[in-house]
Nucleic acid binder design. Sequence first.
DNA 1: GTTGAAATCCCAGGTCC
DNA 2: GGACCTGGGATTTCAAC
Lengths: 153, 153
Amino acid sequence: MKLDKTDIAIIRELQADGRQSNLALAEKVNLSPSPCLRRIRQLEEAGVIKGYAAVVDQQKYGLPLTLFVRITLKRHKRDVVDTFEAAIRALPEVIECHLLTGSADYLLRVMAASLQDYERFMREEIHEIPGVSAIDTSFSLMQVKDSRVFRKP
Amino acid sequence: MKLDKTDIAIIRELQADGRQSNLALAEKVNLSPSPCLRRIRQLEEAGVIKGYAAVVDQQKYGLPLTLFVRITLKRHKRDVVDTFEAAIRALPEVIECHLLTGSADYLLRVMAASLQDYERFMREEIHEIPGVSAIDTSFSLMQVKDSRVFRKP
DNA sequence: GTTGAAATCCCAGGTCC
DNA sequence: GGACCTGGGATTTCAAC
């Protein structure tokens, strides 16, 4: 799908506020309501906009700790990889997991309610997954930037 | 703010679909529409729900590459840190930036349209920031997991 | 104080220009 | 891309428990 300037503007606005009315949005992108809504539906149907989500404050939600866990596997045979990925997908504490190039194999983004919670998670969940060779955890001390907006205005 | 079982359910549902009607949501969490709406407003006013956002497919949006950049600073004096963080905040390619514990100082999540775009970004933007001592980039080959839902159902 | 119900208002979605 | 029209949901108020 080809995105023009107006589509980009619509996406930017909907990333900033996904619940604003079509009328408000139409005004911001200098369109009248009907064509604006048509474009939104097109973006949704094309899958450019996958959905809408509430943005939650993790602190106030009770999960103040964010950690990044870099994991290296012992071997990279099919069964080891599949077992590992299935285990990761089943852990609600793991918000994100990426397969990486470079020294580590996986990067996990984990949320925890407390240090005790984190310690239990690592001991009972991560260390129990077979085939894990190295684990390197870093805590996020501060989120310097959090932008859901992809492109420049 | 104290969150009970129903609040958690509301948040989970709104993370899955942030635009569903109050009526649909009320049914899912076994509440009548009025108290459901009142809880939503309370969650918003308390800042537990910070807002709503469209979820965009980065591939279809034209930014297929995700990279994680680990950066170490030469010194950690106030001016070096402030300069670095200000520079990062001004770069639209940087979607997220965390100050970390451990060997590296910062973890950046960067999106790029192409390898050329990434190369230009590193050369013209990141390497130009004063005080940067080490840079370690990993590409995301595959996103194994992406969950916006924080707690178990 | 918290829930269910009703009425008004405003927006979404469709259709035609 | 813009204008009109209709059905439905949101919002506010009120009554009830």
